[in-house]
Amino acid sequence: LMPLFCGLDGSICLSPNYLHSNSTSHTWSFSAIAELIDNAYDPDVTAKQFWIDKTMIKGQDCLTFTDNGAGMDYDKMYKMLSFGFNDKQTVNGHVPVGIYGNGFKSGSMRLGKDAIVFSKNEDSMCVGLLSQTYLEQIKAEHIIVPITMFHAASLQDILRYSLFQTVDQLLCELKAINSPSSTNSTGTRIIIWNLRNSSEQLEFDFSSDRYDIRIPADVYESSKKQYKKPEHVMQSGPETDYSLRVRFQPLY
């Protein structure tokens, strides 16, 4: 019960290096975060709330993204973690944002090398691991993604290669999806670690403002130079360019 795939139908095999090269479509980290928010907004998820936070797990800085949407079963998570698959449909005039089936993969891998997805709907719980570190360690020639129904016995690779080594630790993350008003909430929780850095400095500043995630000034300036932005923009960029709260609060 741990399907490992190349393409959804098994016909297209992708090199693990593709996870990184695919992520470079995002020259700006906030556009990668927007992909994860948009997924929660889509009509098949319809999350009413979305939480972005930073946490420490086993000494590693991690970004967490949690929504209280419909959650995913095994089949939906398999499709979410597949490349190029998209079956989103307009519901009551609510048009889905993503159309290429690539947003989660490009966005999550832009933010860090490794991501684990916890999800539960009304009937089931499942866990999926999208990890460049995992693929490097097992010397995979193609992209392999362990996905398992939570009650299944085959959790071996997820427990061995993620930040979570016990079933109880995975259960704690699934329980974190619960809202304060309900013990049976549905939703999805994404944890990303091995966060991208610039000159050995994290791309994000988690400490300057406890209620915000910001891009440090020197990282912001160096990224402007790297992507050849006009000089006048580099000198006085708007706060929406480096404050996650200021950037997304008006939009969502």
Score class of each variant (00 low, 15 high):
Leu170His: 00
Arg189Thr: 10
Ile158Glu: 04
Asp212Ala: 10
Ser208Met: 14
Ser154Tyr: 11
Met149Asn: 13
His151Val: 11
Val145Thr: 15
Leu159Arg: 15
Glu200His: 12
Ala176Gly: 01
Gly187Lys: 09
Phe204Glu: 04
Cys172Pro: 03
Arg196His: 12
Phe206Asp: 03
Thr166Cys: 01
Arg189Lys: 15
Ser181Val: 05
Ser185Glu: 02
Ile213Leu: 15
Ser181Pro: 03
Ser179Tyr: 00
Thr188Tyr: 06
Ile147His: 06
Thr148Trp: 09
Ala176Asp: 02
His151Ile: 14
Asn194Cys: 12
Thr148Leu: 11
Thr183His: 11
Thr186Tyr: 01
Glu173Thr: 05
Leu171Gln: 04
Asp212Pro: 05
Ile177Ala: 00
Ser182Val: 09
Phe206His: 08
Asn194Arg: 11
Asn178Ile: 00
Ile192Gly: 00
Ser198Leu: 07
Ile215Cys: 12
Ile215Ser: 09
Thr148Glu: 07
Ser154Asp: 14
Asn194Gly: 13
Pro146Val: 09
Thr166Ala: 03
Thr188Gln: 09
Asp168Pro: 10
Ile158Phe: 02
Ala152Lys: 13
Ile215Ala: 05
Ile215Thr: 14
Leu155Ala: 06
Arg196Lys: 14
Ile215Glu: 09
Pro146Ser: 07
Ser199Cys: 15
His151Arg: 14
Phe206Ser: 05
Val145Leu: 05
Ile147Gly: 10
Thr166Ser: 08
Asn194Pro: 04
Val167Asn: 06
Arg160Trp: 08
Ser181Arg: 04
Leu159Ser: 12
Gly187Glu: 01
Ser198Arg: 08
Phe164Ser: 05
Ser181Gln: 08
Ala153Ile: 12
His151Gly: 11
Phe206Leu: 14
Leu159Cys: 13
Asp168Gln: 13
Asp209Ala: 10
Asn178Arg: 02
Glu173Leu: 03
Asn184Thr: 10
Ile190Gly: 04
Ile177Gly: 00
Ser199Asp: 13
Asp205Glu: 14
Gly187Asp: 07
Ser181Asp: 02
Pro180Asn: 02
Phe204Pro: 01
Ile190Glu: 02
Arg196Cys: 10
Ser154Glu: 15
Ser185Gly: 04
Ala152Ser: 15
Leu170Val: 08
Leu163Val: 03
Phe204Met: 11
Arg196Ile: 10
Cys172Gly: 07
Arg210Ser: 14
Ser207Cys: 09
Ile158Thr: 03
Thr186Leu: 04
Thr166Met: 02
Ile177Leu: 00
Tyr211Leu: 13
Ser198Met: 07
Arg189Ser: 13
Gln201Ile: 15
Leu174Lys: 01
Leu195Glu: 01
Leu195Ile: 12
Asn194Ala: 09
His151Glu: 15
